[in-house]
Design a protein around this nucleic acid. Structure first.
Length: 326
DNA sequence: AAGAATTTCAACCGCCAGGAG
DNA sequence: ACTCCTGGCGGTTGAAATTCT
């Protein structure tokens, strides 16, 4: 419940702190539903509350808003949080935007109580085989997460975090090098195939580094209704990828993403998707075979600049979208 | 049954960015 | 350019709830 002490926004009048009573809730709900909140600093006075505006805002946003979902997080939501956290870090508000009816506070609490504990416990079991790195003679190293049943619980803490490609925390990826069996050469970027982010409209995000592969299934979970949830996380939008790996041989109904080591969720993308789909159908799902496959692909593709390796099944529009190899 | 230990989560704090004056 | 105000955010707190012994 925090602690006492003044706050700049409510020094002038004495204000109540701590838990909200049902009566206070009712006053706030009545006021906002009939007037809107307008300027939060004026809400308490107009609503007849002995609270500071900031407290009213927080109460409304985190608890009284009618569109809140409440209740326990579903498995899908938990998975999504883990995936988004890999990419966004502790950007709870950003994460919460992709969980309808959930607040940043709720997501943060859920992470700090439930997920973090599980992840920590699990990382102790499997942190020694989180990641591999292999040299690519024509480019640089590729970091590929080795995944298995504990995909979500691997290496999310301490030096082992993250075990996935995370454009916002490359230093942490580097910190993981001590876990590798073979020390890699100096790495400037852990990611490989560039995506064209020149039109990235997302504000407040650093320029996106090259990204390699959509490495998640849950972010495209069909229960999340549509890809529109990912409007603000452009790196997770399939159209922002140069290449999508698919386990579906039917390119008219591509299924993404190809997730290393695990079955991709069955989820149909819109049929007007324009980026190349690499057919991974039938590929052995062991991590080592996938890495070998990817290495071959990347090497061949980079050496032929714009022509895809002939051994791959690629749609005709495959070609020049790979803009650079880091 | 009851006290201790642990967990949950609502609410707070401080900081920051952006806008107004 | 500067100050002040406000809203928004992430980190943190601690009472209440729950679990453990």
């Amino acid at each position: 419940m925090g602690h006492g002490g003044g706050h700049s926004c409510c020094n002038k009048q004495k204000v109540k702190r701590g838990l909200w009573s049902p009566e206070e809730d009712e006053k706030l709900i009545n006021y906002i539903t009939s007037h809107g909140h307008g300027c939060w600093s004026s809400v308490p006075k107009l609503a007849g509350l002995q609270r500071c505006g900031k407290s009213c805002r927080l109460r409304w946003i985190n608890y009284l808003r009618p569109d809140l979902k409440r209740g326990s997080f579903s498995a899908q939501e938990a998975t999504l949080i883990v995936d988004l956290h890999r990419i966004l870090g502790n950007r709870w508000a950003q994460i919460a935007k992709h969980l309808p009816g959930r607040t940043d506070n709720e997501v943060k609490n859920f992470w700090n109580s439930s997920i973090k504990k599980k992840l920590l416990a699990h990382s102790h079991l499997s942190s020694h085989h989180l990641t591999t790195t292999f040299p690519n003679p024509k480019t640089t190293n590729i970091h590929v997460p080795l995944t298995g049943d504990h995909q979500y619980y691997d290496g999310l803490f301490d030096a082992s975090y993250p075990n996935v490609i995370s454009p916002y925390q490359p230093h942490m990826i580097h910190n993981q090098d001590h876990l590798l069996q073979t020390p890699p050469p100096a790495i400037s970027q852990p990611l490989l195939i560039n995506l064209d982010n020149t039109n990235d409209p997302t504000p407040n995000l650093p320029p996106l580094p090259p990204s390699f592969i959509v490495n998640s299934s849950s972010v495209f979970d069909p229960t999340m209704e549509s890809l529109n949830y990912y409007d603000h996380i452009n790196i997770l939008k399939p159209e922002n990828y140069d290449i999508i790996l698919s386990q579906n041989s039917d390119h008219n109904h591509p299924i993404i993403p190809f997730k290393l080591g695990v079955q991709a969720n069955s989820f149909e993308l819109p049929t007007n998707i324009t980026q190349p789909i690499i057919n991974c159908h039938g590929l052995n799902t062991s991590a080592s075979s996938q890495i070998e496959y990817l290495e071959t692909f990347v090497t061949d593709f980079s050496s032929s600049s714009s022509s895809p390796p002939s051994s791959l099944v690629l749609p005709p529009f495959m070609g020049s979208k790979v803009t650079s190899i880091m």
